[in-house]
């Protein structure tokens, strides 16, 4: 059994060198002030811990009023997308050692959505765009007795876009979305893609018409921010391109 790499990992962790890290956090609480401001917190933490662990340490030991969303803490629930060192990431999927902790780590709310308190933004416009693309299977005729058949190949066709956890990291990294909140945004298009290319679905035309709108898929400027931001590794820009192509060719 191969163990050398593991022994190295364990030897490192046995030493467990805590380091001092500065978190520079964008604070905003309209109950206190109309202005947002930066606040620094210095904590001692194992750099192999997550940014979320650092935020918890601050909240639990230094300032209980620091406010952010989180739940599963391992990149599945999509609650804790935030802008960390200028890039959208999940706080629970970002290890401190990977983001240069020798400098202050900046943490801000994701952009393009109204900040409500500290790192919490209003997610409603984001979910509304999602709901607007008919994100559900549409079929007609009598339901079969057993399951609908689908080849492994047809199932694979839309696999990438089924991974979306609706964290908004992509949409809130998109310059078009920042400038115009009316744009559906990458996440909604990804979820439309998930059904447009599902061989069982019969409403691709309707979804394509929705995305043919002036605030639809044509607004995309292919900056790839969304692909870079996606914590699930979805090729978001590619999915958007595929939707654009389907609009032209009407083949999906």
């Amino acid at each position: 059994m191969a163990t050398p790499v593991l022994d190295k990992v364990e030897a490192e962790s046995a030493a467990s060198p805590y380091i001092t890290v500065t978190f520079r956090i964008r604070r905003f609480n309209p109950e206190v002030s109309d202005e947002a401001q930066w606040q620094d917190f210095r904590i001692d933490i194992d750099p192999k811990e997550r940014v979320l662990d650092g935020l918890h340490k601050i909240k639990w030991e230094l300032d209980g009023s620091l406010t952010f969303r989180r739940s599963c803490a391992h990149g599945i629930c999509g609650s804790d997308a935030m802008r960390i060192n200028g890039r959208n990431r999940l706080a629970c999927k970002t290890l401190i050692k990977d983001i240069n902790p020798s400098k202050p780590i900046t943490v801000e709310p994701i952009k393009g959505l109204t900040v409500q308190k500290d790192l919490i933004v209003d997610m409603e416009p984001f979910f509304q765009a999602y709901r607007d693309v008919m994100p559900f299977l549409v079929t007609s005729g009598n339901e079969p007795t057993r399951e609908r058949l689908q080849s492994a190949e047809d199932r694979e066709r839309f696999d990438d876009t089924t991974k979306c956890i609706l964290c908004a990291a992509c949409t809130s990294s998109c310059p078009v979305f920042w400038n115009d909140g009316q744009y559906f945004g990458p996440a909604a298009i990804v979820n439309a893609h998930r059904f447009i290319f599902d061989s069982r679905d019969e409403a691709a035309e309707q979804r394509l018409e929705i995305l043919n709108d002036k605030d639809g898929v044509w607004r995309c400027r292919t900056t790839f921010n969304c692909t870079d931001a996606c914590p699930r590794g979805i090729e978001v820009t590619k999915a958007i391109q595929e939707v654009k192509r389907a609009l032209i060719t009407r083949r999906f």
Binding site: E143, S151, D198
Partner: peptide, 20 residues
Amino acid sequence: AVLDLEKMGLPFNRTPDGTI
């Protein structure tokens, strides 16, 4: 319960025959 989810759209992995 499984068949209902499939009909609701759940993308199960498939066998070579296309079943769940």
